[in-house]
Simulated scan of single mutants.
Amino acid sequence: MAAAGHALVDHHCHSVLGRDLDAGAFAALLTESDRPAAPGTSFLDSQLGFAVRRHCAPVLGLEPHCPPGEYLARRRDLGAPEAVRRLLRAAGLETLLVDTGLEAIPGAGPLLPLPDLAAAAGAAVREVVRLESVAERVAAGRVSARSYPDDCVRALAEAVRDRDAVAVKSVLAYRHGLDVDPRPPSAAETARAAGEWLARLDRHGGPPRLTHPVLLRHLLWAAVELRLPLQLHTGFGDPDLTLHRADPSLLTGFVRAAEPYGVPLVLLHAYPYHRQAAHLAAVYPHVYADVGLALAHTGARAGAVLAEVLETVPFGKVLFSTDAYGLPELYLVGAALFRGALASLLDGWTADGSWCAADADRVAAMVSAGNARRLYGLRAP
């Protein structure tokens, strides 16, 4: 198997819950939706739900595809700390690059702190700073409209430095859509937008939620100035996102405008627009394509999705991730489906003479970990 034996760097993920979960809370973390399942149905009955019982059950001492009730009972018997440790260790990950913009799950509690996540996984952990979270913390400090843009830039630089972050991330796709003016906003435009947004916060109260397109553009360009890789959510997600406005091809103007800066732009997830992301990575030297999240949610069809990503993108521009969140199972499922899909594809291409075995092994090493190490400046163990 061409993919066997290679380390994995999970370049985009989140922390997990360290507590036991009931059946409803567990199933709710198997979907991108924040709504309940339709009456009489369960999110366990999905490609991801089936993949969990296939790949995770043996790690907990059960038969593959055991009934969901049996799986959850065994998980509770082991206790959350042991189940989390077993599942994370079984994923066999070398390094986790964790987006810390999500610190808790509503109704389920806080996620594990990064040192606890690292200890459970037996892996190195580095941080990815979420742009919008930093900007919202600045706004919560009751700053003035005039100072807000510079305060954001300063706070972002401090967050990156203090956390020794290896990258930053934007959720522009959720907050507005990727169809924004690609140009940097002027100082006057940004200050005016800050005044409008902060005035709305004063009138309506509640925690700040940044959705103003001008301020989101300001953040993107502040990130470019940091010269760190910029991860961008593209493609499917929860109902807060309008899918057609998350098509990565909508970022083409920004991609062109940012190219002279040489800052790597990493297009996360992308599905069902993964071919668009692959095209951008193929034609722009600073764009990279991610194969995370979609593989877990497509389950038995993961190989078809990965094959479509690899149709046109240069192999040095593809990155592995799980986008695991909440459940340690999602780390293991993401890793197992990626390894299986990659091995099946590369072994098939080698068997029919399209590739040689040495090239297949080299590409497997690149996509699994080498590309991420190079892009984020990580050292191999």
Score class of each variant (00 low, 15 high):
318 V>R: 06
46 S>C: 06
195 G>K: 00
36 P>S: 01
106 P>Q: 02
154 R>D: 13
286 H>K: 01
226 L>V: 11
339 R>T: 14
194 A>C: 05
85 R>C: 09
13 C>Q: 09
11 H>S: 14
379 R>W: 00
184 P>E: 08
64 P>I: 06
311 E>A: 14
109 G>P: 08
50 F>I: 04
89 R>M: 03
254 F>K: 03
381 P>L: 01
274 H>I: 04
258 A>D: 10
5 G>A: 02
11 H>V: 05
378 L>P: 11
152 C>I: 13
145 A>T: 12
293 L>Q: 09
197 W>Q: 03
110 P>M: 00
281 A>S: 10
27 A>K: 02
61 G>K: 01
373 R>W: 07
322 T>N: 07
154 R>Y: 08
31 T>R: 08
8 L>Y: 11
156 L>G: 09
234 T>I: 08
84 V>M: 03
156 L>M: 03
238 D>P: 12
286 H>D: 04
84 V>W: 07
241 L>N: 09
133 S>M: 09
250 L>V: 09
330 L>E: 05
141 G>W: 06
207 P>V: 01
108 A>D: 09
266 V>F: 10
52 V>S: 04
229 P>N: 04
97 L>N: 03
33 S>A: 14
210 L>W: 11
27 A>Q: 09
111 L>I: 12
13 C>N: 14
228 L>R: 13
158 E>R: 12
19 R>K: 00
349 W>R: 10
199 A>C: 00
9 V>T: 14
73 A>K: 05
140 A>L: 07
332 L>N: 09
339 R>M: 11
342 L>S: 07
27 A>E: 13
378 L>N: 09
271 Y>W: 15
14 H>S: 07
197 W>P: 05
157 A>W: 06
135 A>Q: 04
230 L>T: 11
253 G>F: 08
297 H>E: 10
286 H>N: 13
364 A>E: 13
95 T>G: 11
274 H>R: 00
72 L>W: 12
23 A>W: 02
93 L>T: 15
110 P>A: 15
346 L>I: 10
361 D>M: 00
177 G>C: 05
316 G>H: 09
282 A>M: 08
136 E>T: 03
275 R>V: 15
104 A>W: 07
334 G>Y: 11
180 V>E: 01
42 S>K: 00
62 L>W: 13
40 G>C: 07
